[in-house]
């Protein structure tokens, strides 16, 4: 009887100890298939390895950054999935911690190109690249380079669709920075780029899309023949049944759009472990195969057709994200005054 009581007491103490150690952390994720892959490839292995729980908040970076900024001493989020522009805001406002190999050993498997743009306050975890999606039956000979694409709109070679100013994740980089870069114009000198955009608009061969689904509708309905889009989305659409859609990166290359991860300042230190599991080869391989985007662990091997579709990070162009965030208000103002949509 005494032994049974002792065993019972020990089991209670042990279970109490285990529950005291088990921690719940809060992580963020983009919605849809991205979130499902995130749970399966990152959250599940983390929970299995640590016995902790990672609660996932689905939403948007501007929402999360505001929530952290409103509660900096007791943030509701421990690990923040982000985009480059809002990641820069989080760094500038001191909302995130610097990330080192000591805290995240798997960071050693990530090329410096993915951490340097974040000044060490996080790392890219996967990326897409903008290129041109087009309908093969209406554009038999798509332009080989970006400038020829823009000139082709003015010449009337096809009707193109471009992201409107409200497509925050695409327009600043894939369209505006792209034009500044191609034309060799400093980011704060907007006149030449806006003139080019107005010339495209005035040609009558240009329409705009204001969400990612509208782009596909425009191409399928015949409203547009070709336009700027993201690789992963284009391939998913093609595989999903839009057979005549094709995608490529015009010269001098696609424009990168990275997803970023950051550990929130004053958030749980368990966040480091979560990020470490996320950056492991097996987790990253799983995620890339689920969502069709390249990841950053350099040991990851891609199966076909992913291997022949994903670009190397060395071949894509990296916009000046910090520079863009400084001039963006001026770009929006000039866009509204000239292009107007």
């Amino acid at each position: 009887m005494k032994t049974r009581s002792l065993l019972l007491a020990m089991s209670i103490v042990a279970s109490a100890g285990a529950s005291a150690h088990a921690e719940t952390i809060s992580v963020t994720a983009f919605g849809g298939a991205w979130e499902q892959a995130f749970r399966e490839c990152y959250v599940a292995p983390y929970e299995a390895a640590t016995g902790n729980t990672a609660e996932v908040t689905v939403g948007s970076p501007s929402q999360w950054v505001n929530q952290i900024a409103a509660n900096p001493q007791d943030p509701p989020i421990d690990v923040l999935v982000n985009l480059m522009d809002t990641a820069a805001v989080a760094i500038k406002d001191g909302l995130v911690d610097p990330m080192t190999v000591e805290q995240v050993p798997n960071l050693a498997k990530v090329p410096a190109a993915f951490t340097e743009p974040l000044q060490g306050y996080g790392t890219v975890i996967n990326f897409g690249a903008a290129g041109l999606g087009y309908m093969t039956d209406r554009v038999p000979n798509p332009p080989a380079d970006w400038m020829a694409f823009f000139d082709g709109i003015i010449a009337g070679d096809y009707v193109a669709t471009l992201p409107g100013i409200n497509v925050g994740s695409t327009t600043p980089t894939a369209l505006l920075w792209n034009l500044f870069d191609l034309m060799g114009v400093p980011l704060d000198k907007t006149d030449a780029v806006m003139e080019k955009l107005v010339a495209m608009k005035d040609s009558g061969n240009l329409v705009f899309y204001n969400d990612m689904n509208q782009y596909l509708t425009q191409l399928q309905s015949g409203e547009a023949d070709i336009g700027i889009y993201w690789d992963g989305r284009a391939w998913t659409a093609k595989d999903g049944g839009i057979d005549k859609l094709n995608f490529y990166y015009p010269q001098p290359g696609g424009i990168i759009s990275p997803s970023v991860i950051q550990k929130v300042k004053n958030g749980s230190d368990e966040g480091w472990n979560f990020i470490n599991v996320l950056l492991s080869k097996s987790s990253q391989e799983c995620f890339s195969q689920k969502v069709g985007y390249p990841v950053v662990n350099q040991d990851v091997v891609y199966p076909e057709p992913l291997a022949s579709r994903v670009p190397s990070y060395k071949d894509v162009r990296w916009p000046d994200f910090a520079g863009i965030s400084k001039v963006m208000p001026e770009w929006v103002d000039q866009w509204n005054r000239t292009v107007g949509r």
Partner: peptide, 25 residues
């Protein structure tokens, strides 16, 4: 709702927005 969405406090419109931004089915 957008600004108060967390793991236990996500409302349907916020989830719909997040879904629609990343998926088009």
């Amino acid at each position: 709702s957008f600004f108060f969405a967390g793991p236990d406090t996500n409302t349907l419109p916020v989830v719909m927005l997040a879904y629609q931004q990343n998926q088009f089915d």
